Amino acid sequence: MAVRTAVVCVECQDGVLGEHSVLPALGSDAAPLVKNIVRLADGARAAGIRVVHATFGGLLGAPTGTAPIWRRLAPATADWAPGHPAVAVVPELSHADDLVLPRRHGLSPTWRTELLPVLRGLDIDTIVLTGVSLNLALPMAAAEACHDGFTVVVPRDAVAGTPAAYGEAVLANTMRMLARITTTDELLDDWR
């Protein structure tokens, strides 16, 4: 599994999981998962597995789509741009060898972005999906990746939603239909 695998960290950035989160409830509920993602990313790098950060770089222009979340997030992220602290990968996860692929539109890190084509170009066929959130981005990304022929693996202790109980329900009732659900420790054991 390891040779054609990538760990994809979704929105593990200061403006989402850091102290300046535009979604403070999510940031709080997701705080425990960061240490597991750090362990997973370190283990992946040691095993020669690519680590990719799919960040949200702020909107360019009007929001695409009509989701109510845009009314809340558009003003809060209006000044986000390359170099803004909010778009930076959280420091404990940042590594010089990682690939950072920001998006400037959409609720999903895969919808009309270069993430899946880049992974395909790197000969990746298995995505270990981590980060946030189980409310929107992760189920959308898992479904789109499956549609594109990728195998998706989700370590349950390296993803979060808000409230936390809802995230658990999404894992049990939605993500299990799209991905193999596992844990950080199980993946690290596989990669050793």
Rank of each mutant, 00 (worst) to 15 (best):
3 V>T: 11
62 A>C: 02
10 V>W: 05
6 A>T: 08
111 W>Y: 14
28 S>M: 09
151 T>W: 00
88 A>I: 00
112 R>D: 14
151 T>P: 03
138 L>N: 04
101 L>S: 04
153 V>K: 15
75 P>V: 01
94 S>L: 04
124 I>L: 08
136 L>Y: 02
182 T>K: 10
141 A>L: 07
70 W>R: 08
68 P>I: 00
6 A>G: 11
4 R>F: 00
156 R>L: 11
93 L>M: 05
85 P>K: 04
164 A>L: 04
31 A>V: 10
97 D>W: 00
86 A>E: 03
1 M>Q: 13
172 A>M: 00
184 T>C: 15
41 A>R: 01
145 A>P: 10
36 N>W: 01
7 V>A: 10
116 L>E: 10
38 V>S: 09
134 L>P: 00
145 A>M: 10
67 A>Y: 08
57 G>S: 04
103 R>A: 07
182 T>F: 10
91 P>S: 15
41 A>I: 02
177 M>E: 15
94 S>H: 05
30 A>L: 13
54 A>G: 09
82 P>V: 11
150 F>P: 06
64 T>Q: 14
143 A>D: 09
90 V>M: 03
185 D>T: 13
134 L>Y: 01
126 T>I: 08
79 D>K: 14
36 N>I: 03
134 L>S: 00
154 V>W: 07
184 T>R: 10
68 P>R: 08
85 P>N: 06
65 G>I: 07
191 W>P: 02
52 V>H: 05
135 N>R: 06
46 A>G: 07
169 A>R: 15
33 L>H: 03
63 P>N: 12
69 I>L: 15
41 A>M: 05
91 P>G: 13
108 S>Y: 10
44 A>S: 12
120 R>H: 12
13 Q>W: 02
73 L>F: 13
124 I>Y: 03
58 G>V: 07
92 E>D: 13
19 E>R: 15
171 L>K: 03
114 E>Q: 13
83 G>W: 07
191 W>Y: 05
79 D>H: 11
155 P>S: 11
189 D>A: 14
46 A>D: 07
45 R>D: 01
123 D>L: 08
58 G>C: 09
148 D>C: 14
124 I>S: 03
62 A>V: 07
163 P>I: 01
182 T>W: 06
147 H>E: 14
21 S>H: 04
99 L>D: 11
116 L>M: 13
147 H>K: 05
153 V>R: 15
3 V>M: 12
65 G>D: 06
28 S>A: 15
100 V>G: 06
165 A>R: 15
71 R>P: 01
109 P>R: 01
49 I>M: 05
30 A>H: 11
99 L>N: 09
98 D>F: 11
72 R>L: 15
102 P>Y: 04
59 L>S: 03
133 S>A: 12
72 R>W: 13
110 T>N: 06
